[in-house]
């Protein structure tokens, strides 16, 4: 398999002022296939979110080789977009203008932006809320806007940093279903960071377990559950077996 995103020997150490250096990533390797849904689970602070920010182009690693579609990664680009845990919506922008932010930054004209944003707003089920401000939306609605904003620039890769962690359990379940539906139609490569093993198995083609800091890939699980997946799948023996296997791999890395 020719990996679409390939990371080799990625090392990153944070050097915060007034504190000792923190090794976030050490010899981190990763391969993600085109159109693949890969989840990363790992203990808190293992560097999984850091790696997303590296891929996004916001943080430069100290060393290592990261390629996307064969080309070395250089800074942020519209071929990647992130969905953030805390949504990151601009509070002074309406739903529509938040969705259009990336298009605006690309210099697209108002009418063309609207042609892109309107179908997306309908897809995420927020038609009629175009003029609402973020503070008027529920958490689930905000994250739908976050997702639509990420999709608006039509990136090949969707980076998702615990996107549903701030939502209540029921909303989270619905958002997972929604995300799968969108992923299956939009054909994006997704790198999804989460704490929840259930969520990782339910959504992914493969699940990577990371070690505690400094983070490395510990083991990768292939999830051979058939698609399209439904909610009932979560109570099948196969699902629970995978869950147990992943948990056994993960639990040694977690220190309370």
């Amino acid at each position: 398999m020719q990996a679409y995103i390939q990371g080799r020997n990625v090392n990153l150490t944070f050097r915060p002022p007034n504190r000792g250096p923190v090794r976030a990533l050490q010899n981190f390797d990763i391969d993600i296939g085109e159109g693949e849904f890969l989840s990363i689970v790992g203990p808190s602070g293992c560097g999984k979110s850091t790696f997303l920010n590296v891929l996004l182009g916001l943080i430069r690693p100290d060393s290592g080789d990261i390629r996307m579609d064969g080309k070395p990664l250089a800074g942020p680009g519209t071929d990647r977009a992130m969905v953030f845990q805390e949504f990151g919506l601009l509070p002074w922008r309406t739903v529509q203008h938040n969705v259009e932010l990336g298009l605006e930054l690309k210099g697209m004209a108002g009418e063309a932006r609207r042609q892109v944003s309107q179908p997306l707003i309908e897809m995420i089920g927020l038609a009629g809320f175009e003029g609402h401000f973020p503070h008027e939306l529920s958490g689930g609605m905000k994250q739908r806007v976050g997702l639509a904003r990420a999709l608006a620039t039509d990136p090949n890769v969707l980076l998702m940093d615990e996107p549903f962690a701030a939502l209540d359990a029921q909303t989270r379940d619905l958002m997972q279903v929604e995300l799968l539906r969108i992923w299956q139609t939009a054909k994006k490569t997704v790198l999804f960071v989460t704490h929840q093993i259930d969520e990782a198995i339910y959504l992914s083609d493969r699940v990577m377990v990371m070690t505690k800091r400094p983070g490395r890939a510990k083991k990768i699980f292939k999830i051979d559950l058939p698609r399209p997946r439904d909610y009932e799948m979560r109570v099948t023996p196969e699902f629970n077996e995978l869950k147990l296997e992943i948990w056994n791999e993960l639990k040694d890395e977690i220190t309370v």
Binding site: N53, L56, G57, L58, P76, G77, T78, R80, A81, M82, F84, E86, G88, L90, L101, G102, L105, K106, T153
Partner: peptide
Amino acid sequence: DPLLINVVRSLGG
């Protein structure tokens, strides 16, 4: 919120 800065930067701002 520094997150908003990152959002704009990540979208090529």
